[in-house]
Write a protein that binds this DNA or RNA. Structure first.
Lengths: 106, 106
DNA sequence: TATATTTGCAACCGAATAGTTTCATAAAAA
DNA sequence: TTTTTATGAAACTATTCGGTTGCAAATATA
């Protein structure tokens, strides 16, 4: 199964997991406590997040701590870059229009 | 069908469509020319993009011009904000460490 | 008017998705 | 040692997804 970061964040549960573990590492059981579904279902989401390297595991006895691989999140930011350029250009164009109106009022 | 922007950008074809029409509005036929699938398949993607308001239509005779609703893209940026805070903090911490090393070298 | 073009929609299909229940394994605690 | 706890994996299921083909409607052109 080819995993992709955009596919990973498509699911609302996975987005919530990402937000949860962004602050500090958590075990699967602790994560699952926050959702209205079985521990196994959450475990499957964690597997998907791990497969696309959005999440890393740290073994501690029989417990596994999951935490966010923040650098991977930058890939989304990188994709957004092209559109950010567009909306910033449009904003500056609007800015120009506004200052032109101001000048005319003067 | 509840449509969501994160689900919309999960598909690679839809991401490519978004990039295509970001520059200028295009008709479904013109868009479909860029992909190795039927016009109808592309049309379905356009419907999904329209449903979640990522794309707007402009009727011109029997042709329909599709263009990107750039403001909607900002929603992704908004969600990323929380993580950007984290990676910027980590970066500034790294920065501190580096400047400390520099000082010690002096 | 007759024909061609642009488009969306419906029906269908195989694969993927997101959940479930059940089971296996390894570590910790009794 | 026996039992409890933490975890992942496998098998199953209903639903969704992403594509297809075929059709209908509206506009443009001959």
């Amino acid at each position: 199964m080819r995993r992709d970061i955009f596919q990973a964040i498509a699911d609302p549960t996975r987005r919530a997991i990402i937000t949860l573990i962004a602050i500090h590492a958590m075990t699967p059981n602790a994560i699952a406590d926050n959702f209205d579904m079985t521990r196994q279902a959450v475990s499957k989401h964690l597997r998907i997040l791990t497969e696309c390297e959005l999440v890393k595991q740290e073994y501690q006895g029989r417990e596994i701590y999951y935490s966010l691989e923040i650098d991977k999140m930058k890939e989304i930011d990188k994709w957004l870059e092209q559109f950010r350029k567009i909306w910033e250009t449009r904003f500056s164009q609007l800015d120009k229009v506004l200052s032109t109106i101001k000048k005319h009022k003067k």
